[in-house]
Design a protein around this nucleic acid. Structure first.
Lengths: 201, 201
DNA sequence: GTCTATAATAAGATAGAC
DNA sequence: GTCTATCTTATTATAGAC
């Protein structure tokens, strides 16, 4: 955190998370950074620019993290398990930024909005491809790919909303719960469970 | 929508949903309601009061709706299925209000915040009791009751975020997907599936 | 119950000194 | 790279006429 540009970004993440983007003023950010508000504009063109930089780097890092975690794995089920864990891990590690990325989309300009939505679409497509491949291979049930992907992602993302590092569960324990919950949901309807006599047994 | 008080509330719901509470001004609301901004204050004490009224009525109606849907049902599994459908239905029918109730909690005063969180806790407790009862009866697996309840609720709530009435799926189809996804997740680990040889078959 | 007028304040952003 | 000072505009809310 040596340079001021990074400090301003870090302070903004804390404030946007705590108070929200619109409720946070440039004065608040300046005060938190230990400088005058005019000095903010040397580092960032506007308040919106600051928000966009946060959203952009969060999305880029999120996708890069997922790709790095998936690259060594072959089987579809294991890839989906790893994708879920990657998503949960990243959201727990960078809780505030991800919360902002999911709640402050209305604060950016139309052009920037399109750029972020595009990045998010590319990330979601990785999950959608896995669901599709799993269904083709008979590992997962055939279902609405988009709805299932949204279900998986929002479920895990929401976990980051209430997670507290001081809580009684570790990151790994939480990831276990979500991983199993989701895989079971994806398998629901596969041959062995088609008319669900088994889960009623 | 005969009286102005209801019109103001309705317009506010639209605007808070679309732009967010802090990004919406009293002028915006007045303009949408066809009156001058000063006239808003005859009906509501402040902008915060307006937000609180929206949050309060949404929470009250949400819980009342759930209770009315659960009352005629006995078995735990059927009650959970009905609870999930009730939650999904209500969130789809009153999408905007529920979105606000889940994203604008930071806009209200500490006292009002406590009141809303209390209402939300009572609502969540209904789901948590069902999970607990299901586990005791062997219908659901034993798991972390709070995490499971949050998972269920956030999953369904998120559905309301992206649902569009003009989309290709009906409310009932969406409810079906969630209901089965969740029930399968809750059963995961029950006797018949304990070491999951079945779902691998 | 709604209006006009206005108070009191705070916001985002810029100019120019150092 | 950070400062002080300031511009411009918008904000929530109130006072008092009708």
């Amino acid at each position: 955190m040596g340079d001021m540009k990074a400090t301003i970004k870090s302070v903004s993440i804390d404030l946007f998370y705590k108070k929200g983007y619109f409720a946070t003023s440039i004065s608040d950010i300046a005060q938190g950074s230990g400088i005058q508000k005019a000095s903010i504009y040397y580092h960032y063109a506007s308040k919106e620019d600051l928000l966009y930089c946060i959203l952009k780097s969060t999305m880029d890092d999120l996708t890069a993290y997922l790709k790095s975690r998936l690259s060594p794995i072959d089987s579809v089920e294991q890839r989906m398990r790893a994708a879920v864990r990657s998503h949960v891990d990243f959201h727990l590690k960078r809780q505030k930024e991800n919360f902002i990325a999911n709640s402050e989309l209305r604060g950016i300009s139309p052009e920037h909005y399109r750029a972020i939505v595009k990045k998010r679409g590319e990330y979601e497509a990785i999950f959608q491809d896995l669901i599709r491949q799993g269904a083709e291979q008979g590992v997962f049930a055939h279902g609405d790919v988009k709805i299932l992907s949204y279900a998986i992602l929002t479920l895990c993302t929401a976990g980051a909303t209430w997670y507290k590092p001081s809580g009684r569960l570790t990151v790994d324990e939480i990831a276990d719960i979500y991983e199993n919950f989701i895989i079971s949901g994806l398998k629901l309807g596969t041959v062995a469970m088609s008319d669900s006599p088994i889960i009623k047994a």
